[in-house]
Computed example of a mutant assay.
Amino acid sequence: MKGPLFYSKILLFGEYGIIKDSKGLSIPYNFFKGALKTDENLSEQASESNKSLKDFVGYLRNLEQQEQGLVSFDLQALENDVAKGMYFDSSIPQGYGIGSSGALVAAIYDKYATDKITVLENLTREKLLKLKEIFGKMESFFHGKSSGLDPLNSYLSLPILINSKDNIESTSIPSQNKEGKGAVFLLDSGMTGETAPMVQIFMEKMKQEGFRNMIKNQFVKHTDACVEDFLNGNIKSLFGNLKQLSHVALDHFKPMIPSKFHKLWRQGIETNDYYLKLCGSGGGGYILGFTQDFERAKKALDGHKLEVVYHF
């Protein structure tokens, strides 16, 4: 059995901000992917996945009852398939902020939801919001509260523009310039991050008035500007706003940045060779980088694993 493939995603802009209604921009990243598979002889990893799916079935059963009318599944078929050894075969690293649980949620919805909204329909804003709500409730099983954005991205395989909590749309991004010197890249921190504790730290900080003001007046402001600049291809303005955003993260989101990267983070801001920002909730996993000269950034970040996502 080879199910349809579901891809990882990268939230280019909007981490933490979208909790507080900033804009956001999320793009599919086809380098990593996953699919549902069935096997009688499960490897250790596949066996872990299968066990997790067993628990997920129970969770979905409760969800169906608690949220009547929101979503229903062919739970019998799902249960039978899990009993036969179904698992999620995925190359998406877990705890890396690129949507490993999102791809799984999308795959389960795609195969087992009984009255599903399909990708081929005219996706009105109402349908997108309903999908996002369903996916948010489904993904909460994996890491507490979920916005539903990762599974939505994986399910649609389209860039998604978040204007606000209640206003999302699929969008197109400027074509890549394969010959361009600039790039968006992933920097591997070499350690995994946990979403729930990071979000917890953020929520605690949000109780302080000073932090709330900083989020509104600096973080959200620069995030919104970056989204606009990126979509409109205003590269010069984009890098000005990215520098500010990178600075705000270093000043106010230190716990989310692995400590061994604090120096590299500051170095990017001081030299303008590259700017780093959080990829997802941080704490480990990937760090997102932006540069106008990838060769220069590569030299400056020598010894680190970089993966280009998009060329300017």
Rank of each mutant, 00 (worst) to 15 (best):
K2R: 13
K2C: 07
G3T: 07
K9E: 02
K9I: 14
L12Q: 04
G17Y: 10
K20R: 08
K20G: 01
D21R: 01
G24K: 04
G24F: 08
S26E: 08
I27F: 08
Y29H: 04
N30M: 02
K33A: 07
K33T: 01
S47T: 03
N50Y: 10
K54P: 03
F56R: 00
G69W: 14
A77N: 08
L78V: 00
E79Y: 05
K84A: 01
G85A: 02
S90Y: 05
S91K: 06
S91L: 00
I92N: 00
G95R: 08
I98N: 03
S101M: 02
A106M: 01
D110W: 11
D110F: 10
Y112R: 07
A113Y: 07
T114M: 15
T118Y: 04
N122F: 13
L123C: 05
E126M: 12
K127Q: 12
L128P: 13
K130W: 09
I134E: 13
M138I: 05
E139N: 01
S140V: 08
F142K: 02
F142G: 02
H143P: 06
G144K: 12
K145Q: 11
L149T: 15
D150C: 07
L152F: 12
L158S: 14
P159W: 11
L161R: 13
S164M: 14
N167E: 14
I168R: 07
E169S: 15
P174M: 00
Q176L: 00
Q176K: 05
K178N: 10
K178H: 12
E179V: 06
K181F: 04
K181M: 04
G182H: 08
A183K: 15
A183G: 06
A183Q: 06
L187N: 09
S189D: 15
T192I: 13
E194P: 01
E194G: 03
E194F: 12
E194T: 08
P197E: 12
P197Q: 07
P197W: 09
M203G: 08
K207Q: 11
Q208R: 13
Q208I: 03
Q208L: 11
E209R: 15
N213G: 06
N213W: 11
M214Y: 07
K216D: 15
Q218V: 10
D224T: 01
D224Y: 11
A225M: 06
D229T: 01
N232A: 08
I235G: 01
L238G: 10
L242W: 03
Q244S: 10
Q244V: 03
S246P: 05
V248G: 02
F253G: 02
M256T: 15
F261N: 03
H262K: 06
K263H: 15
L264N: 12
R266M: 13
E270S: 06
T271C: 00
D273H: 15
K277E: 04
C279F: 02
S281T: 09
G282T: 15
G284F: 15
G284H: 14
G285V: 10
Y286K: 05
A297N: 00
K299R: 10
A300I: 11
L301F: 11
G303L: 13
H304P: 11
K305R: 11
K305P: 04
E307V: 14
V308R: 03
